[in-house]
């Protein structure tokens, strides 16, 4: 952990070397998703509600997935950009250092400009929580935190899985953006508005629904019966994350037996 912070510090120093571009990027990053959010707002302004979901409920849904994604992109950017590390051969360098490859790849990039995006999601989160007639009890706060953390794990998992594939393909796989960017866009809205197969896919394959829609039902008081399953459903994110890590280890082994 200490070492990771050191990595981050060095990267921070590097990025601030280019001050102007840093601030422009951070600003741009904060504004881009805002346009998406504006779209959401105007849609609800027109229709009032979508399949029984009010604007603020949808906004909460949007904020949570936005925050998870921003966190994943900030911390796990190294995996997102991993294919460059393989093509340039710099991965060799990581292998001759006495630390785990995961830690070193995480430490290879840190996207500070994404903090703008994070902030924007955070503001929407607090705002919608304020406007919703909710009593924020300790279990609900706990569930919200769990949702965000596990959501981040899912996105990070997808980044890691994609990065692992680049051990075979060398070039990056744009296909994976279907799952990251696409998944993010889908999960911004409550899953119940989609077709059944989409809902199934995002529940059982890439369990974004488990970190977003299902626990949100509990937070919003829309459940009946036992709540514990709803509360703990974000843990599916961890279940998703572990095989991704496993894939990574297979990838590294493959790399070392084939070379660059």
């Amino acid at each position: 952990m200490h070492l990771y912070l050191k990595y981050v510090w060095i990267l921070f120093k590097s990025q601030t070397q280019y001050r102007l571009s840093f601030w422009m990027l951070a600003l741009g990053q904060a504004l881009t998703p805002l346009t998406v959010f504006a779209g959401l707002y105007f849609m609800f302004a027109q229709f009032g509600q979508v399949k029984g979901w009010s604007f603020y409920e949808a906004a909460l849904c949007y904020a949570i997935i936005g925050l998870s994604f921003a966190l994943a992109e900030t911390f796990a950017r190294g995996f997102d950009m991993f294919s460059t590390l393989v093509t340039s051969g710099d991965f060799d360098r990581l292998l001759v250092r006495p630390r785990s490859t995961i830690l070193q790849v995480l430490g290879s990039r840190f996207e500070f400009a994404r903090l703008g995006r994070m902030l924007q999601s955070l503001i929407v989160l607090i705002w919608s929580l304020n406007k919703l007639p909710l009593a924020l009890t300790a279990p609900k706060l706990f569930t919200l935190t769990l949702m965000i953390v596990c959501g981040m794990l899912i996105f990070t998992g997808i980044f890691i899985a994609t990065a692992s594939l680049s051990f075979w393909t060398i070039q990056g796989l744009e296909v994976a953006n279907v799952f990251t960017d696409g998944g993010r866009e889908m999960a911004k809205y409550p899953l119940s508005i989609y077709e059944k197969w989409v809902a199934y896919f995002f529940t059982f394959v890439i369990p974004l629904g488990c970190v977003n829609y299902l626990p949100l039902l509990y937070v919003l008081g829309r459940t009946s019966g036992s709540n514990i399953l709803y509360m703990l459903s974000p843990l599916a994110g961890i279940v998703f994350f572990l095989p991704c890590l496993f894939m990574w280890h297979i990838g590294v082994r493959h790399y070392r037996s084939t070379g660059s």
């Binding site: 070492l3 050191k6 060095i10 120093k13 051969g89 360098r93 292998l95 001759v96 006495p98």
Partner: peptide
């Protein structure tokens, strides 16, 4: 790898945008 040092002449092991001493400091922690 704790016991070996490797220099690839064509590739750097230092962090490009920061002073050399910072790279050394990070290596100390690694």
């Amino acid at each position: 790898v704790r016991n070996i040092g490797v220099v690839f002449g064509q590739r750097t092991q230092l962090w490009w945008d920061v002073p050399v001493i910072d790279s050394f400091g990070l290596l100390r922690d690694i």
